[in-house]
Design a protein around this nucleic acid. Sequence first.
RNA 1: GGCGGCAUAGCCAAGUGGUAAGGCAGAGGUCUGCAAAACCUCUAUCCCCAGUUCGAAUCUGGGUGCCGCCUCCA
Length: 465
Amino acid sequence: MKIYNTLTKKKEEFRPLDGNKVTIYACGPTVYDYFHVGNARVFITFDVVRRYFQYRGYDVKFVQNFTDIDDKMIKRANEEGITVKELGDRFIEEYFKDADALNVKRADIHPRATDHIDDIIEFIKVLIDKGYAYVVDGDVYFAARKFPSYGKLSGQNLEELEAGARVEPGEKKKDPIDFALWKAKKPGEPSWPSPWGEGRPGWHIECSVMAIKHLGETIDIHGGGPDLIFPHHENEIAQSEAATGKPFARFFMHVGYLNINNEKMSKSLGNFFTVREILKEYDAEVLRFLMVSSHYRSPINFSKELMDQSKNALERLYTALYAMDHLEKVTPVRPLNKEEEEYLKTQLENKDKFIENMDDDFNTAGAIAALFDMVREFNVHLNENSSREAVTKTKDLVLELGGVLGFFSKFQPVLLDEEIERKIKEREEARKAKNYALADKIRDELKAMGIILEDTPAGVRWRRA
RNA sequence: GGCGGCAUAGCCAAGUGGUAAGGCAGAGGUCUGCAAAACCUCUAUCCCCAGUUCGAAUCUGGGUGCCGCCUCCA
């Protein structure tokens, strides 16, 4: 497998550090609000990465944190008149509602920053002891200049960073490029006791601490949104490697932006859609399809038009799946003939194409093309006279590969209640009697109930709208 | 100012040296009582210029345009 590594800025062959085990840490949301479609892209991307590793037989340990203490959390909690803890609890719950809907599997561990205050304090102590951090009036800062390779991830050198660096009012850094590990308590803020006085952790330290605690000192893959490259991941590397003396992450993966009108979607620009509101209008899988239909490092210019296109494209896949399901009931059980063996061979080639694409830095767009190739092949070659085995194998294959991308969670053979079944039979009789007015009326009635009928040579096929 | 990314048909999107995957939309056709689904056919020389090469969307140089990071942000 090849993965593009932000550290080296090129695709590299990926091998886990430890045998078959792959450790992945993805930076999760700050839980002060519903997450937006741009956030969703990152969650879905790492979900696919994880699923694919598992599909290839790796033993994956996946950690995604919740940042539940920072300036935005404090601000929002004050606005709402609730505690930071209450705010975090609430939006973690809301996170899971949306993530579950998107069929994003839950991480093996979802650590919260506030559950790791003791670990964070211990970690900061180590950095101070080793001379990488210093205390000023209850704040603790990391001395970036002491870490020789600072800037290696973002490709910045110290002088340039210094030129652009800002010092917030009240900060007491010795050097503008230093960053806070611990912030002394200000009035009205939640705080924890520490050797440096009451205070709270800085942002970057939590991820270093939680990644190392749950996955070890060197993890295989670390990633998140592209705007985390600097300063967040840069700082994580510095802290972690300063403390442990070991490489922090072997691969860094960063997802492309999700834009609106070609501009970055962000809370601060206000040009965002929450997943919650998109799900009022579209099925969650449509959003997932959209995300996965382009390469994860390319920008996506999000729009309703794109959602509509994705919806139609996904429907082609589902229609084929329901057709397979139907054929599975009516086709004869007999050995494969020569053509069907050829057909299945072609389908296995399509499977190889899927895997080759995924092996190449998770080229989901190419993988989806293989899925469509598979569907066309099925539509062309299989019908009511085909061997049932050929149908079943196709269906299993499509479900298997689609599952790697997190598709088809909604696919289930449609069960009909007796009333609907009776109506379908009535319609069939009307058609035989050439009473098409009645037949069409029944079809319309069923459509209103969400059942779509399709007349095929193999009999009536139905699916839910 | 420093660093980086992107530019492929109406729309979306693969392809990083051998003469353009796939999807959506559109047009025509086949099938069908109709509809739906499906199938077939049609629609691009890859932003521009120059260069390297037998051969470039793919490499090099120069332009143009758009975007991002350097500051909280996925």
